[in-house]
């Protein structure tokens, strides 16, 4: 089953064309990494998939539905962390987690249990009773990731999930993403870190100038050189899709 899909998506912010025929597909059970330079269109594409931005043209699908009008049944199986997390500084870490679980459709009892599990998984126990506003940026990111994923979604979007994390946090995210995919979830991760995505992704897609210009093979040698070669080639023939 296709968890996440963009087909021919185009969008411009004024005169700036951010997406120019963006296509991708993430099947259930696979982790797809999206890499690209700043301004390549990665975050805009993820915002479209998250239902935060209606594109000028093209089709976006989350679990078979338009993300802008995602029905509650599908939303219960969807998670996204694109930009600011679902975290409020005046609430404690545990309150944020329980609230996120409730908003994701869990019952009160399930929410409390999933919050406890998330505190353990993300090693947030020391801060569970503290206000989220007092967390370090790394722990704040852990909390945001926990809030986006504690309901075990079957379609998950993560934008730069390890940008502020220490090595221990990176390992936690890697294990989370793999465990969700092993359970059948389709996970789309954007990142600048080629080495990191190479470890967790089943496929790597290179975005450039608002579209996908080609794949990279995870685990292959000289990923960085391949990446730049692909970007340069796309610049040479911008409408030629790999």
């Amino acid at each position: 089953m296709t968890a996440l899909e963009l087909h021919g998506v185009r969008h411009a912010f004024g005169r700036l064309r951010a997406l120019d025929g963006f296509d991708l597909r993430v099947a259930g059970g696979e982790v797809v990494a999206l890499v690209g330079l700043n301004g390549a269109g990665k975050t805009t594409a993820l915002r479209v998939l998250a239902g935060r931005l209606r594109p000028d043209a093209g089709v976006a699908r989350v679990l078979g539905h338009d993300p802008a009008t995602l029905p509650a049944e599908a939303a219960q199986s969807f998670g996204q962390l694109v930009g600011a997390p679902l975290v409020y500084r005046e609430l404690t870490v545990r309150e944020n987690l329980v609230a996120a679980a409730r908003l994701h459709g869990l019952s009160r009892a399930q929410a409390i249990e999933s919050a406890t599990t998330a505190v353990e998984r993300f090693e947030l126990g020391r801060w569970a009773g503290r206000a989220a506003g007092g967390l370090s940026s790394g722990n704040s990111q852990r909390l945001g990731l926990a809030c986006a994923s504690l309901h075990r979604p079957t379609a998950l979007i993560l934008d730069e999930p390890t940008s502020a994390l220490d090595p221990a946090g990176v390992v936690i995210v890697r294990e989370l993403v793999r465990s969700l995919a092993d359970d059948g979830a389709g996970v789309l991760v954007s990142s600048h870190h080629l080495d990191e995505v190479s470890r967790i992704a089943d496929r790597i897609l290179v975005a450039h100038a608002g579209r996908i210009v080609g794949p990279l093979a995870p685990g292959s040698a000289e990923l960085e050189q391949q990446f730049f070669a692909m970007v340069l080639a796309a610049d040479s023939s911008p409408r030629e899709s790999a």
């Binding site: 915002r47 998250a50 239902g51 935060r52 989350v62 993300p67 995602l70 509650a72 939303a75 219960q76 969807f78 998670g79 996204q80 962390l81 694109v82 930009g83 600011a84 997390p85 679902l86 975290v87 409020y88 409730r102 908003l103 994701h104 459709g105």
Partner: peptide, 14 residues
Amino acid sequence: SEGTAGAVTGLAAP
């Protein structure tokens, strides 16, 4: 202003 309007998108609670 804090960017959380986007975070409340795609939730089971519309």
